[in-house]
Lab assay of single mutants.
Amino acid sequence: TEKEKEVKRLAKERGLSPDQVRELAQRAGFSPDQAKQIADEFA
Rank of each mutant, 00 (worst) to 15 (best):
Q20L: 06
S31T: 15
R27F: 09
Q20E: 14
P18S: 09
Q37M: 11
V21D: 02
R22C: 04
L24P: 00
A39E: 03
K3G: 09
T1A: 13
E41I: 06
Q26W: 05
E23G: 05
R14I: 08
F42A: 04
A35R: 02
R14A: 14
V7N: 03
E23N: 06
V21T: 06
R9P: 00
Q37W: 07
Q20P: 00
E4C: 07
Q34L: 09
R27H: 12
E2W: 14
L10V: 12
L10H: 06
Q34N: 04
E2Y: 10
R27Y: 10
A35Q: 04
T1C: 14
F42H: 05
K5L: 14
E13N: 05
E6G: 04
A39I: 03
Q26G: 05
E41R: 07
E6R: 07
R22E: 13
G29T: 00
S31K: 05
D19V: 08
D19F: 08
A11Y: 03
R22S: 06
S17E: 07
L10C: 08
A28W: 15
P32E: 10
T1I: 13
T1V: 13
K3D: 06
T1N: 13
E2P: 09
S31I: 03
P18N: 07
T1E: 14
A43K: 10
Q37L: 12
A35D: 00
T1W: 13
K12S: 09
R14S: 09
Q34E: 14
K5F: 10
E4L: 15
K3T: 08
P32T: 07
E6F: 10
V7Q: 01
A35I: 04
V21G: 01
D33K: 11
S17A: 10
E23H: 10
A39T: 03
A43Q: 10
R14K: 14
L10G: 03
P32V: 12
F42K: 01
R27S: 14
A25T: 00
L24R: 02
D19Y: 08
L24N: 00
L24K: 01
R9F: 04
A25M: 04
Q26E: 15
P32C: 12
L10W: 10
A43M: 12
L16G: 03
L24C: 06
P18K: 11
A35G: 02
K5A: 15
A28H: 15
K8N: 03
E2F: 11
E41P: 02
E2L: 12
G15C: 08
P18F: 13
Q26R: 12
S31W: 04
I38T: 02
Q26K: 07
R22N: 09
K36F: 07
R14L: 15
A11C: 00
E41A: 13
E23P: 00
R9E: 07
R9K: 11
P18I: 12
Q20M: 06
A39G: 04
S17T: 14
E6M: 11
A39W: 03
I38N: 02
A43G: 11
L24G: 00
K5V: 10
F30Y: 05
E2D: 13
P18M: 11
G15S: 08
F42W: 14
E2H: 10
P18W: 15
P18Q: 10
K3A: 13
K5W: 12
F30W: 03
R22F: 15
R22T: 07
D33A: 15
R22K: 11
G15D: 09
E4I: 15
L10Q: 09
A43L: 11
E2V: 12
Q34R: 15
K3C: 07
R27M: 14
S31G: 10
V7S: 01
K3E: 08
K5N: 13
P32L: 13
A11P: 00
F30E: 00
S31L: 07
L24T: 02
K3W: 12
R9D: 06
D40V: 09
K8P: 00
A28N: 09
Q37T: 10
D40P: 01
Q34F: 07
L16C: 05
K8C: 03
K8R: 11
K8T: 04
L24S: 03
G29Q: 01
A28E: 11
E2A: 09
Q37F: 07
A25E: 00
D40C: 11
I38D: 02
Q20R: 05
A35K: 00
K3V: 11
E6H: 08
Q37E: 07
L24V: 04
L16K: 02
G15I: 03
K36G: 08
E2I: 10
A11I: 03
A28C: 14
F42V: 11
E13P: 01
R14Y: 15
F30D: 02
Q37Y: 06
